[in-house]
């Protein structure tokens, strides 16, 4: 069934029913794991992955010191001598933290290219009032976050109240102002079907998302290739209709460079080379960086390094 949404300008918009065949999606998604990147192409892809990474820590146990260490790695992933050896590894795209730790990250990442992303709207459950969600966003932005990763209300979405989901995203987008990018987390692991994933993607894009993002990382499954494929197709459909490029961020579940290569190949084949940039594609991950760094060293030196060689926070 199509879904009717009253837009901010008063127009009644229909999001048409867009059936997804999950068997076909899984087959197509699996085909990207068969792509084989070698030599120079692989090294480029690995470095690109670092530049696309939102290095993340989202624990109740996060402390300012822990976030500082993470920021250190974000600015300079490899120690200088190894960095030189591999011809330079870029800093990551952003550090992603809880709102309370935004000021710490902002201080430590000043004068760098690394963005500060804050999860928001009562991450990860979104189960507070609309007012509190907005306050959450406003505070993070005022403390210097340049990217807001909000979660949609599954409470509203799953009971079919799409208007509330839409309105909330619109208000959050307003609260982001001109200073912050908005990434909208759909929490696909709780949406049940790929039809719903596509619907939620369209809803988020319609409401003004700069990026759509799969997961909080707190629910299993997080990002998967099939779910990401459906979201990329919604991004493509929107581009075909409007010419506007929306970003994509799979998060929670991408742990190895090999998996990440399949994601990059998928983005390249579904959306094209224009999306192979940190401004339109990100990996949300806490554990991916080390494997990517090891693979970079492996490509250049021919041997695998222990993580102890380049440190971890």
């Amino acid at each position: 069934m199509g879904v009717k949404i009253r837009l901010t300008n008063g127009v009644l918009e229909t999001i048409p029913h867009h059936p997804i065949d999950s068997v076909g999606v899984s087959e197509r998604a699996a085909s990207f794991t068969k792509r084989s990147l070698k030599k120079g192409s692989k090294l480029e892809a690995l470095k690109t992955m670092v530049a696309m990474m939102d290095l993340t820590t989202l624990e109740g146990a996060d402390t300012p010191e822990r976030v500082r260490q993470l920021c250190g790695r974000a600015r300079q992933p490899l120690p200088a001598h190894l960095d030189e050896l591999v011809g330079g590894v870029p800093p990551v795209a952003a550090v992603c933290v809880y709102p309370a730790l935004v000021p710490v990250a902002v201080e430590f990442l000043a004068e760098t290219s690394v963005q500060v992303a804050s999860v928001s709207t009562a991450f990860p459950s979104s189960q507070v009032s609309g007012e509190l969600k907005l306050l959450d966003v406003q505070q993070a932005v005022s403390w210097g976050a340049t990217e807001i990763d909000m979660v949609i209300s599954r409470n509203a979405f799953l009971r079919g109240d799409y208007q509330t989901v839409y309105d909330e995203i619109v208000k959050v987008k307003e609260a982001c102002g001109t200073g912050a990018h908005l990434k909208v987390i759909l929490e696909t692991g709780e949406l049940g079907t790929l039809d719903q994933v596509y619907r939620a993607s369209k809803l988020a894009i319609l409401a003004g998302a700069d990026f759509i993002k799969t997961s909080t990382g707190k629910v299993q499954p997080g990002a998967t290739l099939p779910v990401t494929l459906v979201m990329l197709q919604s991004i493509f459909d929107h581009f075909q209709q409007s010419g506007q490029r929306i970003g994509m961020k799979p998060a929670g579940g991408v742990r190895t460079a090999k998996e990440a290569i399949a994601y990059l190949c998928m983005v390249y084949e579904v959306l094209g080379v224009e999306w192979l940039t940190p401004t339109l594609f990100r990996f949300g991950a806490s554990r991916l960086l080390n494997d990517v760094l090891r693979q970079i060293l492996r490509q250049v030196t021919g041997s695998y390094y222990n993580e102890e060689v380049f440190g971890s926070e």
Binding site: K47, P90, P91
Partner: peptide, 22 residues
């Protein structure tokens, strides 16, 4: 919106993968 800060140096540098397959 564009982000407040400049894009990271890796984003447009020579090391960005452009879909080449060796």
């Amino acid at each position: 919106v564009e982000t407040g800060k400049s894009t990271s140096k890796g984003s447009e540098g020579p090391s960005v993968w452009k879909g080449e397959f060796a």
